[in-house]
Write a protein that binds this DNA or RNA. Structure first.
Lengths: 198, 198
DNA sequence: AATTTCCTATACCGATCGGTATACTCGCAG
DNA sequence: CTGCGAGTATACCGATCGGTATAGGAAATT
């Protein structure tokens, strides 16, 4: 039950990895199933042995990567005390996640902002909403604790997420200098968000 | 020279409008030429009488809409005195532009953030870079004028643009409440950017 | 040793893609 | 009145798409 199912899992992994590479580079619609097969070194019936169709590949990628990063993020943020610490942890973790494998956020942004993929619609929305709600709650707590001036928590969360995500998006899209998503940038964002530019 | 070339221009316009609608809804790759023909109520040879190929349609759309909005923006921003006024004008103009016809920014964002369209690559980058540089220069001036604390102008510009563009992007993507991209939101963004959340 | 699981190889399906070709109509302009 | 520009109608091209069918091989489990 171990030796053969192990190699089967490896093949499945190769397929997912190839799909991640190609989807993130060219987009879902522009990537043909045959491209994936070639990249993975596998034949067509094999793919359909592991996945129902092309859309299942994308769905599997999204659920795996986004789900695990989500839990990590919530845990790390919760372990901080101050609003400044929480926001820094949020930005840092997001940056590290992108530096580890830029293909993942690139696929996420491309799928989220790019043309609708009808087969997936809603899945990604639910996950991004969850991440956004995490930040909203964070802002609410900080306001009631007196750490932030009273104002709309959703507006604050949207603004902060924008400041974090746009660099992420830009970085994952094109080849940027190695040290772009640094801890310094993360802290600068938090500092600007809390203190303003004036 | 007027009567027939006038109706010809009208047909060309119908094609561009149909392409704008469909490209912005489904994305460039997912939109077939035959979809555009049906939407415009025109036959295939007619399209190829006005445009060389599918890519020329997208290129024409981008250059027209982005170019004209760009000039407008630069003029309006220049007519303001303070940094606060300039930033507000920037945000407001961007919002108004989106409220007027959400298809345009939606196409822009989708093309910019979505999967690469090889035929267009570079065109959109040049235009977004131009808009970004406008804001960078604005920040530089404000810093030398003592209106902003000294810090990296590119970082400030990126952060501010993120705060403005993300709502734009979200609004153009899905049906939001009518009054979402309001003057109040624009001012709130500028206020937050300048003064911080603390 | 027999059987099942995982996989290859190859060929095919109908549909759709972007783009072209041909032939014909109509109305304004010279 | 003649020619040309704008347009329709229709049919076709080769290529590629996602997905299926069939047949068989190698290896591990039983």
């Amino acid at each position: 039950m171990t030796a053969r199912s192990e190699s089967a899992a490896k093949t499945k992994e190769r397929l997912l990895d190839a799909a991640l590479t190609l989807f993130s580079q060219q987009g879902y619609a522009a990537t043909g199933i045959r491209d994936i097969l070639q990249e993975a070194g596998v034949t067509q019936p094999t793919l359909y042995h592991h996945f129902a169709d092309k859309a299942s590949l994308l769905q599997a990628l999204i659920e795996r990567h986004y789900g695990e990063s989500q839990e990590q993020l919530a845990g790390i943020v919760a372990s901080e005390e101050t609003i400044s610490g929480k926001l820094s942890a949020f930005a840092l973790t997001s940056f590290e996640y992108c530096n580890r494998d830029p293909r993942v956020p690139r696929l996420m942004f491309q799928t989220y902002f790019g043309p609708t993929v009808p087969e997936i619609d809603g899945v990604l929305d639910k996950l991004t909403e969850k991440r956004f709600r995490l930040v909203v709650r964070l802002m609410e707590d900080a306001i009631t604790a007196g750490e932030l001036s009273p104002s709309d928590p959703e507006f604050l969360a949207l603004s902060f997420c924008s400041m974090v995500d746009q660099p992420l998006n830009l970085f994952s899209r094109k080849a940027r200098p190695k040290r772009y998503l640094t801890a310094e940038l993360a802290h600068a964002i938090v500092y600007l968000f809390l203190g303003g530019a004036k």
